[in-house]
Design a protein around this nucleic acid. Structure first.
Lengths: 232, 232
DNA sequence: CGATATGTTGAATACGGTCAAAAAGTGTGG
DNA sequence: CCACACTTTTTGACCGTATTCAACATATCG
């Protein structure tokens, strides 16, 4: 499913700053805690994640922040079809490697069809489903089940990217990040994590997640991984 | 932007039940309060809304429901790239006219490229942005501003479809529907609407919305319509 | 007209937020 | 290696928004 990355790798890409070759792609790398692009920018680029952790988020006028997605290896970030100000910001949490793609050239490539058009459409459909499930999560689950659902989704996505095994994976998010993902406060996230740990369901300590009782978690969160594979 | 509909109209479509001609498209019509397709179905179709109101929603194991989108004229509903069980249900609120499209034939058409591939990618990108903004809305706004934001978004989308003018439009949603859109309870939606009316901000009565003080609404909700035109 | 869905209101409750302070962890430079 | 600054985590007390439960009013529709 993450053939988008394979596709990129199988085409000529220049590592330097010159924007030429296939799709005007440039391989780039960002330092931890740096901002890749900012909401409102008009740079007309988009990204495909090669490795590392990133946050796609939206800053709200009232000072709040909503994290929209935590893209993983192979995910396309910031796709749009037309020129215009960027809707969301992307920040690197860890060292982050991406393909930096020209929006215009990519949309032209979609017009040309072929495997690339397929991969893009597939990714976009999948992202739609993920965002829809996030909506259901925030809108209709309480703090416990909401948090559980998030870590289950994360495990599934990381597994596909080969970054999780036996219900264990590294996760460099802070509790504050988590709060902005889940629509809670950092304080309440802390209490919720404590409770999940106390109930022997999952532990999140020092950047490491362990799903202790995956079965119970799946049941209480009503987690159904199908949306991650398909689309709306 | 809603050239997808124009595109469909400019190609041969049969009105009868036979699935043939361009993309295997069939024009269909649904009665008010009927269910167009149900979460879990494996029918491998998708829809493009021609007219009428519909709800795209997800039923949760705990009995809850989260409405993911209220598609309007020209919107594509239920897109996915691969076969598999449907993620969400679609129900008609009013009489609903749609193009019923074969998923397989549509994805093949994307492979072929051209204007259609562009329109699909554009629609998907736009839906991504809409869902992301819904996330921010539910996750980081209180009942008042959340409700205000929804009605502002709806006005904007209906305007584009020519179904709203001077801050007035018809909206057949019940307060219960509204609750499932906004991640609130019907009771609280009722109180919130009362307050919005009392403050001379907006009124929602008998299926009719009036944005009384649009300027104030935009300010308090931090509404920025740009996401509706572009993508993430 | 009666049945059912939708809207409205009140009172009590609970879940998560706010404020504040301290503890633990992390990184930097002297 | 330690001192210092800063971020992140943790906990307590209190508060407020939204939920729950229940009753009644009002539309809507066959």
């Amino acid at each position: 499913m993450q053939t988008l990355l394979q596709f990129m790798h199988s085409h000529p890409v220049r590592a330097g700053p010159e924007r030429n070759g296939f799709l005007g792609v440039v391989a780039k790398s960002y330092k931890p805690h740096s901002i890749v692009c900012h909401q409102g920018d008009e740079d007309d680029r988009l990204f495909i994640v090669k490795s590392g952790w990133a946050l796609l988020y939206r800053d709200l006028p009232n000072g709040g922040r909503q994290i929209v997605d935590t893209p993983v290896r192979g995910d396309i970030v910031g796709f749009r079809f037309v020129e215009g100000p960027r809707y969301a910001s992307l920040s690197a949490i860890t060292e982050l490697a991406v393909f930096d793609v020209s929006r215009k050239e990519l949309t032209d490539a979609i017009f040309a069809g072929g495997l690339l058009a397929k991969e893009i459409a597939c990714s976009l459909g999948r992202l739609n489903a993920i965002l829809a499930e996030h909506l259901a999560n925030i809108g209709r689950r309480n703090a416990m089940t909401r948090t559980a659902h998030f870590f289950l989704e994360l495990e599934e996505r990381l597994s596909i990217a080969g970054m999780s095994a036996q219900g264990r994976y590294d996760c460099p998010l802070t509790q504050h990040d988590l709060a902005d993902i889940l629509g809670l406060t950092a304080v309440h996230v802390n209490r919720t994590l404590r409770e999940l740990r106390a109930d022997d369901l999952l532990s999140f300590k020092a950047g490491h997640v362990q799903l202790i009782d995956r079965k119970k978690l799946v049941k209480m969160a009503g987690f159904d991984n199908e949306y991650l594979r398909y689309g709306l």
